[in-house]
């Protein structure tokens, strides 16, 4: 084992300083969201007094935050289902020999390197042509597409580690391709699929650019887009903006605390495989 005793205090101090630097902005955000706006202006560094949930209440009352929240949940859920289903099926097909397999693998891995921000106009045009502008499904479809190469790589990487003998023995027992997929490959690949799901949910929840580009009304506004509008419309009421931000990051923090290792895996797996 690694020696635990010989850590110098200097190293510890350095690590703790970094820890504090990482946490201060978030703690300040949390604290500020419970303080009245006037206090933020008059004594931003003063001892926090008058802490209350008023900011949260007011934000929820003045804005349809629950609707935005629900929209974000729907977008993240739909994008994940579409993208992961497509990626899993394709990854399974890639386990078999067929003519254009090599070519497909190259195309998928090349897509990983395309900065999709460059496709603002094409996506806008495509989604409009589909009649899905200002629609949750439109935003979800874009996320599903943009994240497909990454989910495919992660899931395929996992399936590649499954020994071929497993499927072959199932085939000998009389299972057809679909059965072998459902009964054997799918259960074994579960960790890889979950990792890809986590990656997609977090990315979809946090995305701003396309959600903003494809949105017009409240009916398809996600939390991130709503937060953005706080800067322009709530210029003076920072306390409200802080409360809204806390609401927007709370779900990811909760998921992160519950699934820490899965998330760290998910966020790095794609990167390492790519």
């Amino acid at each position: 084992m690694h020696g635990r005793k010989k850590i110098s205090p200097l190293v510890m101090v350095f690590l703790v300083i970094i820890l504090i630097l990482m946490l201060i902005p978030f703690l300040w955000l949390m604290l500020s969201s419970f303080r009245p706006n006037a206090d933020l202006f008059n004594e931003p560094f003063g001892i926090p007094r008058n802490l209350s949930f008023d900011n949260f209440k007011e934000v929820m009352e003045s804005h349809p935050m629950l609707l935005y929240f629900w929209n974000s949940v729907l977008v993240a859920g739909l994008a994940t289902i579409i993208s992961i289903t497509a990626a899993t099926l394709a990854a399974y097909a890639m386990q078999h020999r067929f003519m254009s397999r090599k070519l497909l693998a190259i195309v998928f891995s090349m897509c990983l390197f395309i900065p999709t921000n460059a496709f603002m106009v094409p996506y806008y045009v495509i989604i409009n042509k589909m009649g899905l502008y200002d629609n949750i499904l439109g935003i979800a479809l874009v996320y599903a597409g943009v994240n497909l190469p990454m989910s495919f790589m992660v899931i395929k990487g996992y399936m590649d580690t499954i020994p071929k003998e497993l499927t072959e023995s199932a085939r000998i027992d009389g299972a057809d391709c679909g059965q072998a997929f459902r009964k054997i490959i799918l259960p074994i690949s579960k960790p890889g699929i979950v990792t890809a799901c986590v990656f997609l949910v977090i990315n979809s929840w946090n995305e701003l650019l396309f959600a903003n580009l494809l949105n017009q009304s409240d009916s398809s506004r996600t939390v991130q887009v709503a937060i953005r509008s706080f800067l322009t419309t709530f210029e003076a009421n920072y306390a409200h903006a802080f409360a809204a931000m806390v609401i927007s990051i709370l779900p990811t923090i909760i998921i992160y605390v519950l699934l820490t290792d899965r998330i760290i895996d998910g966020m790095t797996a794609g990167a390492v495989k790519g």
């Binding site: 990482m22 929840w205 946090n206 991130q224 927007s248 990051i249 990811t252 923090i253 966020m267």
Partner: peptide, 8 residues
């Protein structure tokens, strides 16, 4: 942590 929080 910052990696799971939205850039927004």
């Amino acid at each position: 942590i910052p990696n799971v929080i939205s850039t927004t």
